[in-house]
Design a protein around this nucleic acid. Structure first.
Lengths: 253, 253
DNA sequence: TCAGCCGAGTTACGTTGCTTCACTAAAGCG
DNA sequence: CGCTTTAGTGAAGCAACGTAACTCGGCTGA
């Protein structure tokens, strides 16, 4: 999209490549060490550079973290959107389950990035309230919301199990014109579904379900997600709608 | 309880007091700075000591963190248990809501401790798989489980919305003799409820619901928790049972 | 072509925090 | 009263962050 603006800024591509390599190396190290801690020294060593060289690309550790957090938001949003869009638009519940599965798989695959987004700020790092992260922050939620909005527009949303919406919450929703396509009670149901998904995901990602077999964790997750779908009024596909919520009937995540 | 064992070990009490002061100071600093990072230097300065003195009490920063994590587990478990037991045993759903509210309030009050338990290991800190934390780790969950077990023993558990339990999950539950009082489907429902509670709690504790008014957050939480209760088969109290799930009808958390 | 610019990267350095070690001093105990 | 035990200190090593001054190589414009 920016390729027209100039004669392919040559120098900048090398720079961008280095920036990407730094971020990739940082993620790699976080992955190896299992923490969100990154030492500039280590990144530099892996990249065959000396630590001060990194300051050409990031003013300090915080700036690198901000970049990583922004990327993480985008990654998660993309993963969720891709999984969702891979399922037939008519299969409302199938889309939700696919999106939820992507959310989970991403978290399990990249617990550090998940932690960057959904955990406490990294030690010594003050979250920039006004910054590039804020904009990207709602992307994952937006992907879920878009799904509800689509379904709503098609008239495929059933009333959720919780039909009453307290005034305070209703007012809040009204202010978010981005979600104006969704009825307040469905918006509330979406938040409930998201929280439910997020809860099972973070418990698993942080090892609090390690006492269960992997298959049991799969089953628990599917049950949770299908339960959320049902209570949120996401209609089951014709095939699956016959019985009660039944995680075992769904193919593995 | 140990006061009989000896002539009141004088010296050890001062030591225990210092240990407590160190932990309290660490928490205070974490609270001030909003991170789970603790600098030995700062703790020492606040306490009017030099940093090396702390090594008389904790071998290193990790050991202090382990102690803090253990305390956090116990604190949370105690808070949940206390809130639960403050409600009439007959009011099954009321006990759940009280316990859930305590879980949430504790997390909001002590986000750093919450993060210590439910987040990624702190940078440079390797979670001791075999250690004092493991034992205390399941206490919060145990408190919730105890509630379900009580209700089950009294025959006050309704069948949950999700009645099918995949074999893999069923096998898992069977191995946990601690939970033998609970039917597998109710155990599954309890995990679903816990995940749901944990999700809404951690989203809020980490600021991902900051775009909502505080009252709206209260309402959303109550809706989530009551929804979880309903789907898990926790019977509503007579008074509240009349209508649909209605968060607005419940007094503020 | 070449003089100069620009930016990547380096070495050297100051600072801070973790941790060890050797030592002091005070409190308990026989 | 003298021994032991232990809290605490100062000095020092080490590692990581971050700054500053310098080098080097490629690009650019007259």
């Amino acid at each position: 999209m920016t390729s027209v603006a100039g004669p392919i800024p040559r120098r900048e591509r090398a720079r961008a490549a280095t920036v990407d390599e730094i971020k990739a190396t940082a993620l790699e190290l976080m992955h190896e060490q299992g923490t969100t801690d990154v030492r500039f020294t280590d990144i530099a060593r892996v990249m065959g550079m000396t630590p001060p060289a990194l300051y050409r690309y990031f003013a300090d550790r915080d700036e690198l973290l901000v970049a990583l957090i922004t990327d993480a938001y985008n990654d998660l949003g993309d993963a969720v959107a891709a999984a969702r869009d891979a399922v037939d638009e008519e299969d409302i519940r199938g889309r939700w389950i696919a999106a939820a599965g992507a959310y989970r798989q991403w978290a399990l695959r990249e617990p550090q990035q998940f932690s960057l987004i959904f955990g406490l700020p990294v030690p010594g790092f003050v979250a920039p309230q006004e910054g590039p992260t804020t904009e990207a922050a709602s992307r994952a939620l937006s992907q879920l919301a878009a799904m509800f909005a689509d379904a709503s527009r098609r008239g495929r949303l059933d009333p959720p199990l919780v039909r009453t919406v307290p005034d305070s919450l209703r007012d809040c929703v009204a202010e978010e014109q981005k979600f104006s396509d969704i009825a307040p009670e469905s918006f509330q149901a979406m938040l409930h579904a998201w929280a439910s998904l997020h809860g099972i995901t973070s418990l698993e990602a942080y090892g609090h379900l390690d006492w269960m077999d992997p298959e049991a964790r799969d089953a628990l997750f599917l049950g949770q997600v299908r339960l959320a779908a049902q209570t949120a009024g996401l209609p089951a596909d014709r095939d699956a709608a016959a019985t009660e919520v039944d995680p075992a009937a769904v193919p593995g995540t």
